[in-house]
Amino acid sequence: MTASEHTMAWQAQSLLLDYPSAALLDRLSLLREVTRAVPGPVGDPLAQILDHVERTPLPDLAADYVATFDHRKRGSLYLTYYTYGDTRKRGMALLRFTHAYRAEGLVLSSEELPDHLAVVLEFAAGHPGLGLRLLSEHRAGLELLRLGLHETNSPWASVLDSISATLPRLRGSDEDVLARLIAQGPPEEEVGLQPFGGLR
């Protein structure tokens, strides 16, 4: 893929993984153009989710989004969760995202964690090199999310298929991590994450 194709794909994926709103509906025609402008393995899955969005009333779409991503651990959109769970180490991983964004002049509100997949994709669209590195570092978690969405026949599984098509294939180490995540799940250790709620 070219840099411009990565930019278009990641921006479209970011919009489709954000909470569904009227703003998304206003961008459907533009998103359709993206599906035709990027390679088939990236664009075809996006066309599938767009079909679903177009035929689903917005309140139903929003309710399904909440049920999919807010109430299921295997559906978490927070990338560091898969590697670190709710442990102290996750706080340091969140800071890595924060520092990467700040280095490029991006400041998030305190309302959003910096590892939310929609946020990471939007950042990657504007900074493809660094964005690819951040996404690739969480390749196993992305694959676990993709598999989890397919298990529940979620329409958003196609967005993860599209994301996967923009990234390198799973390597041996990633496959090992994925196998461990499938068998054991993320680490567990309840700690407060408020200090890492975003950039200030």
Rank of each mutant, 00 (worst) to 15 (best):
M1G: 03
M1K: 04
E5S: 09
H6G: 02
T7R: 15
T7S: 15
W10R: 15
W10L: 04
Q13A: 14
Q13G: 02
L15T: 07
L17S: 05
D18L: 04
Y19R: 04
A22M: 08
A22C: 00
L24S: 05
R27E: 13
R27T: 09
L28W: 00
E33W: 07
V34K: 07
R36C: 00
V38Q: 09
G40R: 12
G43M: 03
D44Q: 12
L46F: 02
A47L: 09
I49Y: 10
I49P: 00
L50N: 07
V53L: 05
E54C: 06
R55Y: 01
L58M: 04
D60H: 13
D64P: 00
D64H: 09
Y65W: 14
T68E: 10
F69T: 15
D70G: 05
H71Y: 13
R72E: 08
R72G: 01
R72A: 10
K73L: 06
K73H: 04
L77I: 15
L79K: 11
L79E: 07
L79M: 12
T80F: 07
Y82W: 15
T83F: 06
G85E: 04
D86C: 13
T87R: 12
T87D: 08
G91A: 10
G91Q: 04
A93N: 05
L95R: 09
L95E: 11
R96P: 01
R96L: 11
R96G: 08
F97Y: 15
T98A: 14
H99D: 09
A100M: 02
R102T: 04
R102E: 14
R102N: 06
G105K: 13
V107E: 13
S109F: 03
L113D: 06
P114A: 14
D115F: 04
A118M: 06
L121R: 09
F123H: 12
A124H: 02
A124Y: 00
A125N: 02
L132C: 13
L132A: 14
L134H: 03
L134A: 10
L144D: 11
L145M: 14
R146Y: 07
L149E: 04
L149T: 10
T152D: 12
T152M: 15
T152P: 00
W156Q: 05
D161Y: 10
D161Q: 09
I163W: 10
A165N: 06
L167A: 11
P168M: 11
R169F: 11
L170C: 03
L170Y: 09
R171Y: 01
L178Q: 02
A179E: 14
R180P: 02
L181K: 05
I182H: 08
A183G: 09
Q184M: 03
G185W: 01
G185L: 04
P187A: 05
P187S: 03
G192T: 05
G192P: 09
G192Q: 01
P195S: 00
P195G: 03
F196M: 14
G197V: 07
G197F: 03
